[in-house]
Write a protein that binds this DNA or RNA. Structure first.
Length: 261
DNA sequence: ATGTCTACTGATAGTAGA
């Protein structure tokens, strides 16, 4: 079974591109972020045609998350309690015996902006909420755009980035608190020393220059980690395809040795 | 510093957010 996470940066603008990726990679479950579309305008029929059921938490213009699945989904999470003002950023479902949730964590903008403190508070609420709904021993995945660079190796700037937005001690502590709940970074479990990125700024030629950050993660509990056979950042799908513009994020996917009943 | 992209608006170019 193949699971994936992808910040698509506008689902309506990206729909044809997303379709190309789904057909190329054939994932079973996908967490999408930054849909930037209301639930009324969500292109459900396009995914239906491709054989995917959808669980959507949409919002006009900003944010928005969804789970696509080839298997039957039972919705279990919609939003982070107490953080409704920060928009549609968390949705989850139970699929094929797996708890699968996807998050679009706040960006924070810059260290002086009030959204930076709000980002930290959002993380604190997530770390409180998650264990109230998901047991550490159950097979579970929390994936998404976390807007945090966990370690210097995850930044094109290396340790020179330390202290700047996405690279602060405060953000790393919050991300670490999720790992302390028993969630493990599937990519890092498979590729301990590989420097690779999942996001590149559209500006200043960041992608061709190799100036990226690894901020998109598939986090899994131990029962999931034990089943992982491969994890890849699909860098090829950060490139233009058939004249279509890519998201500024690449998809990240993992293959699990998983029985779908 | 910023060479881009998306979606919004009493829109039809300018702005905000990332």
């Amino acid at each position: 079974m193949r699971i994936a996470t992808w910040n698509v940066n506008g689902l309506r603008a990206r729909l044809d591109y997303v379709r190309i990726w789904l057909e190329a990679r054939q994932p079973d479950i996908v967490g999408l972020q930054e849909l930037k579309v209301s639930e009324e305008e969500f292109p459900a029929s396009a995914f239906d045609d491709l054989g995917f059921e959808v669980v959507v938490y949409g919002q006009k213009a900003w944010n928005g998350v969804a789970v696509l699945t080839r298997h039957r989904a039972e919705p279990i999470l919609r939003g982070l309690p107490g953080q409704e003002d920060f928009g549609a950023r968390l949705v989850g479902a139970r699929i094929a015996g797996l708890t699968f949730a996807t998050a679009y964590c706040p960006n924070g903008k810059d260290l002086a902006h009030q959204d930076f403190a709000r980002k930290l508070a959002w993380y604190d609420d997530l770390a409180r909420f998650w264990p109230s709904r998901v047991a550490e021993e159950e097979p579970a995945v929390l994936c998404g755009d976390f807007n945090v660079v966990p370690s210097p190796i995850d930044s094109w700037r290396g340790a020179d980035g330390d202290g700047s937005i996405f690279h602060t001690r405060e953000e790393r502590t919050r991300f670490g608190a999720l790992l302390d709940l028993g969630l493990r970074d599937l990519y890092r479990e498979k590729h301990a020393d590989r420097q690779a990125y999942s996001w590149w700024d559209y500006r200043a030629g960041a992608f061709p220059r190799g100036r990226g950050l690894r901020i998109d993660f598939l986090l899994g509990t131990s029962t999931v980690v034990d089943r992982v056979t491969a994890v890849e950042i699909d860098r090829d799908f950060r490139k233009k395809k058939e004249g279509l513009t890519a998201s500024d994020h690449a998809p990240v996917y993992a293959d699990l040795d998983w029985e779908v009943s």
